[in-house]
Design a protein around this nucleic acid. Structure first.
Lengths: 170, 170
DNA sequence: GCCATATCGTTTCAATTGAAACTATACTGT
DNA sequence: ACAGTATAGTTTCAATTGAAACGATATGGC
């Protein structure tokens, strides 16, 4: 008959679990924004991010874009090729290092950027408008802190179990 | 030329863009936590979530689990079958509706749950420990508000710039 | 009872993904 | 100059994903 939380733990409730809630929130927002530009411009998330970063920082190489967007270089490679095929990106070869390509938005790409960027910012503004000004400030701080803590967890987290739990076990 | 922000927009800077930062944060944390249980228990994210929700709310059907975890029912179906194959889940048929299965953790599944749940909570605690108490409180509120706003954006957001149809299509 | 429609869970299939291998170019030390 | 190593970007291939079709069961209207 539906025991509540069987063992001694402080109840792991998925719907209150921070990592899970962040995942739901992030997916919901990404989907919403993708709905705004996806249909209209036929862009996927990776392609849009490439355009966004090149709109802000032109003349990056593919690896630069991958680092800035924190996305996989294979994904970037494919997105870049699709964008070039769609006439939204121009690629040239770096004179001083012929392995590197130099990417920048074409005129058409700039049109797309100038049309979508305000929409994206409007989405963000609408989300933030649900918060008070001080919550908005807090959010900035919190995101920075959590991201730092998350990266630390990623690097050192493997030994969480040994450190935190079960002195006798394992 | 390297224009800063070409048009009239207040500069869309990906690294400061809320939806993007949430995505990075969520991915970083998910990866970190997956590293904690993935290797040790050979579980993927979906399988772990199924175990988590069944540990908290036993005797759900597969569709119930899908709704609670907000994951795809195909993904749940596969995760459930893998977990049963691994002896971590028991399935029986609902007497009053023979389409429905009734899922609950096996003894082995409970062992896994009791071992991982504290680890997951420890991860969460470590993340939260980077925040002050009041930031922690604020985060709860903010996540609720943003999730609500995000869902609203998902449903109505298409007319942000102009009109686009179809809630739920595609 | 019988038909139409809805739901549960699985299977199929085509698209997406990423790790590893690969090509081409660059750098470093001798 | 050469060998060895490192980096940029692409291709390959196998695993993962999810939309749609599906079989089985259930429910509501008649």
């Amino acid at each position: 008959m539906v025991p509540k939380a069987t063992s001694a733990d402080p109840a792991l409730d998925l719907e209150r679990f921070l990592p899970y809630r962040l995942s739901i929130l992030s997916n919901t927002i990404s989907q919403a924004i993708a709905g705004v530009y996806g249909e209209r411009f036929n862009l996927n998330v990776t392609q849009w991010r490439v355009i966004a970063v090149l709109g802000r920082y032109p003349n990056l190489s593919a690896v630069d874009v991958a680092e800035r967007t924190k996305m996989d270089k294979v994904a970037i490679s494919r997105a870049v090729n699709d964008l070039i095929a769609g006439g939204r990106l121009d690629r040239s070869v770096d004179k001083s290092d012929r392995r590197r390509s130099v990417l920048c938005l074409s005129n058409h790409g700039w049109d797309v950027y100038r049309e979508i960027a305000p929409l994206a910012l409007a989405c963000e503004a609408r989300l933030k408008s649900s918060l008070t000004a001080s919550e908005c400030d807090a959010l900035e701080r919190i995101l920075d802190k959590l991201t730092t803590a998350g990266v630390a967890l990623l690097l050192t987290g493997e030994d969480l179990g040994m450190q935190i739990r079960c002195p006798g076990a394992r």
